[in-house]
């Protein structure tokens, strides 16, 4: 009996301790989400109003070319950025794991870009890539007058420059996560592989990478969140230009929310982003949940 009472009391205490967080979650997060969805169904402009217009905002959103470009850009950016950062980060980690000299220095150098904000990253790369005083000018001045590297001012290539900058920014973080994973791998596995006469690349590919599953998942989730909220890099590096070629959904939302005083369209765009993310995350959560339950049994 005393045990039961003790348990209820501690549950009550836990509940009390968690209630502020729960309140914040419900009011700020869910409340604002609900408000956003509601506003997206109204004709709101600069100030919110409650004239219900059904899905009109969504119709004009889907017909909006800038939105279409933004979504396509996010898909291109997201996939390239994820693959390139994971691959580069892993290779860096493998290279450092070879017990190189000056390991600490190298690690700091590779991790350094991550300590900078996207705004600074964007500015630096904007200057580097600017054809009139960046890399193109430098190489030309070195005696290669026909050298071309003007991707940042070309509509068809500009999105890849955003990928460059973002990979430069994030690869170090992936490296750090992977390195931790590599160091966690039992030396005995390496010894066993050596006895079996496996070449190192084969060990990495068939044994180490599958063992690093958790590290890859951690890194991928961290990177994925920065894909969805990609905004500052686009603003600092190209401001969405040339034209609308490097626009991204979050920037679409921000521009329409504030500068353009179009709450209805902005919230429709935000809601669409939410639905897309939910459509990706929900099945994954369900799957994780099932796996966890199966593991318990």
């Amino acid at each position: 009996m005393p045990l039961v009472r003790h348990r209820t009391a501690s549950r009550l205490a836990a509940g009390l301790a968690l209630s502020p967080a729960l309140l914040v979650l419900v009011v700020v997060y869910l409340g604002c989400t609900a408000w956003t969805v509601w506003i997206s169904l109204t004709s709101s402009r600069m100030l919110p109003n409650s004239t219900f217009v059904g899905l009109r905002q969504y119709a004009s959103l889907m017909g909006n070319e800038r939105w279409q470009v933004s979504v396509a850009n996010l898909a291109v950016f997201g996939s390239l950025f994820l693959i390139a950062s994971l691959a580069l980060g892993f290779l860096l980690a493998v290279a450092i794991d070879q017990r190189v000299r000056a390991e600490n220095t190298l690690r700091s150098i590779f991790l350094y870009p991550y300590s900078m904000s996207f705004i600074v990253t964007g500015l630096v790369w904007q200057w580097l890539l600017n054809p009139s005083f960046g890399i193109e000018k430098m190489v030309r001045d070195l005696g290669f007058p026909s050298f071309h590297f003007d991707w940042i001012v070309r509509q068809d290539m500009v999105i890849y420059t955003l990928v460059f900058a973002a990979v430069w920014h994030a690869a170090g973080l992936v490296m750090a996560i992977m390195l931790a994973g590599l160091r966690g791998i039992d030396e005995d596995i390496w010894k066993a592989a050596r006895i079996d006469g496996l070449p190192p690349w084969r060990v990495y590919l068939s044994i180490v990478i599958p063992m690093l599953g958790a590290s890859f998942a951690t890194a991928a989730v961290l990177l994925a969140t920065s894909v969805v909220r990609l905004y500052d890099l686009s603003v600092a590096m190209t401001n969405g230009g040339p034209g609308v070629a490097s626009e991204v959904p979050a920037k679409f939302v921000m521009d329409h929310l504030f500068e353009r005083g179009n709450l209805g369209l902005a919230t429709a765009a935000a809601t669409s982003m939410l639905i897309t993310v939910a459509a990706v995350v929900a099945p994954w959560l369900v799957w994780q949940n099932r796996r966890a339950r199966r593991a318990q049994v």
């Binding site: 509509q155 034209g243 609308v244 070629a245 500068e259 353009r260 005083g261």
Partner: peptide
Amino acid sequence: SPPALTGAMEDVISQYWNT
């Protein structure tokens, strides 16, 4: 014109200029 329309025009003009 209201900011929303000015912005929509801006997108179209920018697209034409850059294409």
